[in-house]
Design a protein around this nucleic acid. Structure first.
Lengths: 242, 242
DNA sequence: CGAACCTCTGAGCGGGCTCTGAACGGGAGG
DNA sequence: CCTCCCGTTCAGAGCCCGCTCAGAGGTTCG
């Protein structure tokens, strides 16, 4: 469990998420990372199971693959919504099915990520959904991350240090978000690779080093460093000075 | 929820809307976007259900398909008005039924949109109806949107920046409205497609880029830019300078 | 019936982004 | 002090993303 982001429902119990995907590998890895976030997770591999679990489990949010073996993800959503009108949905889609199948969905506050996705992004999107739907306890829970004088606004996709803006590329942004959500905790290159890069990325840990180097140039440039190397272990982000 | 447009009734409770359409996809997507606006929404698929829900739910406004499987939308309206004389109605009509069926409706204060419609326009029309009917709490709730020195008068369909008028085509206007209602928040091309373009639009996200380009020429021309590209994420509208 | 406008498609271009490979430097341990 | 290895950084290739132009069809309006 990690207390840093203990995201709970208004009644204090953990947020409930139902994960629906027919590929066991994906279902497992998504379930794992959400459990790690401290949420209450159940899994379904078919549309039928999804509906059954939905009625029983009453989740706050559903991670739903659009392509299911037995039926269409959108019809599953309709059925779930009939019982729980306000449930949040994060769709998983293959790249080529994005345009035609997801029409209208993001307008209703729901969202989607395309396979292959990064876990960091999936979690961020899901947190965003829950926050905007007002399903979390902490109403002050804003889209703002702060570590020392470093501030990230996730909605505006803006990062500032000491008030001055910093431009980041998508990968740099994702990497920094991961570090900022785990301040003072050493993250290994493998962990960062698993969270920030897509699960089908075949590359080496060397890329992490490279992007840390990029980040340092933009964030620590001239100032007191916040990103620290722990030799043989990984990287840490700490407020400057301490 | 989005605090930016928390539109509430005089007693502070959310505005109530009844959505009546027999096509599940349309009912779903309309319901979704209205819930996203923070309103209290119920759905009916037939005229009979609509009347029953209307008597029970007592909505402030009704989104009503004129062509229903069991009965005529206008007769449904008559029945609803018998119980609630002042309820607002936004009709959904097919293009070819506009002339004969909806004549006189707008004179009574109600409004209509033709299928296929854009969600941005539907929401705007509905907001307009409620505002003019005095059903919203905030009477200062004007038809005016302001971001920096950029001002949009939704009723007059006029846009000015720094006092000088700007001519926009219908799509450009709708796109800008969407951006102005979400200042400082990055909107993805998919989100913009879903909100600004009709739900049956099969096209690619490339169109959004094109129209953003048009908007920039008219709004940012020569001045300090307000529309910003966030690579890999989407577009943001911000007051100039920040 | 013609003209102006609007919307969308397609193609080309420019540049940012991501990753590979290699060289360099410094720490740790022998 | 030397060596190995880990980490850093540079340079560059390729790709993808976003911007823009030109033009075809459709619609509206005079």
């Amino acid at each position: 469990m990690n207390e840093r982001t203990a995201l709970t429902r208004p009644d204090g119990t953990p947020v409930r998420v139902l994960v629906v995907d027919d590929e066991p590998d994906i279902a497992e890895v998504v379930t794992g990372v959400l459990r790690y976030e401290g949420w209450d997770v159940r899994t379904a591999g078919t549309g039928r199971d999804a509906v059954r679990e939905g009625l029983d489990f009453r989740p706050d949010a559903v991670v739903l693959d659009i392509m299911l073996p037995d039926r269409d993800g959108l019809s599953v959503l309709r059925e779930l919504r009939a019982a729980q009108p306000h449930v949040c949905v994060l769709f998983l889609t293959a790249r080529d099915t994005v345009e035609d199948r997801v029409t209208g969905i993001t307008a209703g506050g729901d969202d989607y990520v395309t396979k292959p996705f990064s876990l960091e992004e999936l979690v961020a999107r899901l947190r965003g959904l829950l926050r905007r739907a007002g399903m979390t306890r902490d109403l002050a829970e804003s889209a703002q991350l702060t570590v020392g004088d470093l501030v990230m606004d996730e909605d505006a996709r803006e990062v500032t240090r000491g008030g001055t803006g910093i431009d980041l590329s998508p990968t740099e942004f994702e990497l920094l978000r991961c570090l900022m959500r785990n301040p003072r905790r050493v993250l290994s290159k493998t962990q960062l690779l698993d969270r920030v890069w897509s699960y089908d990325f075949g590359g080496q840990a060397h890329v992490v080093e490279l992007y840390v180097s990029y980040l340092r140039k933009k964030i620590d440039a001239g100032r007191e460093p916040m990103i620290h190397t722990v030799r043989g272990a990984g990287y840490v982000l700490k407020p400057a000075g301490r």
